Simulated assay, not measured.
Amino acid sequence: MKIRFLVFDVYGMGGTVRTVLNVTNYLAQNGYDIEVISVFRHRNIPFFEIDPRIKVTVLHDVVNRTKNQLDLKSKVANKLLKMKSRLIHPDDEGHHFFSALTDIKMYNYIKSIDSGILVSTRPSFNIFASKYVKKDVKVIGQEHLNYAIYPERLKRSIVKHYASLDYLATLTDDDTTDYKELLSSGSVKVKKLTNSIPKLQGGVSPLESKTIIAAGRLVPQKGFDLLIEAFKIVNEKHPDWKLKIFGGGRERQNLLDLIEEKELYNHVVLMGSTPNIDVELMKSSIYALSSRFEGFGMVIVEAMQCGVPVVSFDCPKGPGEIIKHNEDGILVENGNIEAFADSLIRLIEDKDLREKFSEKGMENVKRYEIDEIGTKWKETIHELIVE
């Protein structure tokens, strides 16, 4: 049975792409027939490794598409490209990327699938699949964020359409409970299938570097502005420590302005994106997660896997499920900048505590290793096949 994953852009960066490829690479290596349907392609070379056994189908190739051809087909395509999408939910954060052209390409491809399993990877795709996939195709919808953060119109669509999925894969216990209650009137089975970590490449940090690290898209959700504010307090007491932030995004200039304003230009560095965050983690001594909200907090698990102790806001909903407060990391009241700074200073000044958290954290996150999570995916696939 072919298993297809419908993703925004498998060539791109970001947590969803990384976690999808962790699973698809694992399944391909274990003999499953895997296809990734990438709605977009915005770069020629994939940011993360894709197993060569995976078939990749690109529906709209932004990089290699020729825009100036004069034949009728190209003219029609260019006209459709300027028209807004009608089939992707308007509250999808990436709605502006979609168009009438991508609607047609997605609809035609999905309608060409007669059997197998389709895994959809964002709310608008879950809704799309529930409406347009043929009845003989089993659908697993994935939720990478929690229900509470969505706009009201999207919440209503989720409750209406998720109920007809075969499975809904959630990332945390809280999300699993919430969705079971929300979708109790439907036939969908809600199951926790958390994110996984790949095999370690960079090794374990010796915790000697005077470096705090953070990573993620440079967007308001990730709270890097809050982190810079907290690090200003840290810097006043420990000016020999640096903060490195990995990632790219629309907030880059605003963050650079804030670094300038706080006179931290010699201490805080925006490093850009990296496909090998574990290699960078090995060079650091503390990981800081400053998000205003998270679907899960995959990078917390990666940091702990590398033996790097974590200070995290106790934001909804993932960090509190991963970190055991004061046992293998520190959870801080959400949004409390001074408490966040105090926790960073506490770890800076206590290497024994860093080493304790490091040891406990590495043991904690073994439950997220790909062999563990991959087995759960195989069990779920088997359940769908024998139904």
Rank of each mutant, 00 (worst) to 15 (best):
R4E: 10
F5S: 01
V7W: 05
G12Y: 08
V17I: 12
N25C: 06
G31C: 07
D33I: 04
R41H: 10
P46N: 01
F47K: 02
F48Y: 09
E49Q: 06
D51H: 08
D51V: 02
P52F: 03
V56G: 01
D61N: 11
V63Y: 01
T66S: 10
S74L: 09
S74Y: 05
A77D: 14
N78W: 05
L81E: 14
K84Q: 13
R86N: 11
H89W: 00
D91I: 05
D92S: 12
F98A: 01
S99A: 03
M106D: 09
Y107C: 04
Y107E: 08
D114T: 08
I117S: 08
I117P: 10
L118S: 06
S120M: 06
R122F: 04
R122K: 15
P123R: 01
S124Q: 02
S124Y: 06
N126A: 09
I140Y: 08
G141Q: 04
Q142T: 14
N146S: 03
A148D: 15
R153W: 04
K155D: 08
I158P: 01
I158S: 03
A163T: 07
S164Y: 03
L165C: 08
A169L: 05
L171H: 02
L171V: 00
T172D: 05
D174T: 11
D175S: 14
L183A: 03
S185E: 00
S187N: 15
S187R: 15
K191F: 01
K192V: 03
K192A: 03
L193F: 01
N195C: 11
P198I: 07
P198F: 12
G202V: 13
T211N: 11
T211K: 15
I212K: 05
A214T: 09
A215F: 02
V219D: 14
V219R: 00
Q221G: 10
L226V: 06
L226W: 10
L227K: 08
E229G: 03
E229R: 15
A230T: 06
A230Y: 04
F231Y: 15
F231D: 10
N235V: 07
N235M: 10
P239H: 12
P239K: 14
D240Q: 14
K242M: 05
K242H: 11
R250G: 01
K262S: 08
N266W: 11
H267N: 15
V269I: 14
M271E: 15
D278I: 13
K283V: 11
I286S: 09
Y287T: 13
A288W: 01
S291A: 03
M298P: 06
M298A: 08
V301E: 04
A303I: 07
A303H: 12
M304S: 06
P309N: 09
S312R: 07
D314G: 12
C315D: 11
P319N: 07
G320N: 13
I323C: 03
N326I: 12
E327P: 13
I330W: 02
L331T: 12
V332T: 14
N336I: 08
N336H: 12
F340G: 05
S343G: 10
D350Y: 00
K351T: 15
D352I: 05
R354E: 03
K356L: 07
F357T: 04
S358V: 05
E359C: 11
E359D: 07
E363A: 02
V365D: 06
V365P: 01
E372M: 12
E379L: 13
I381T: 11
V386H: 09
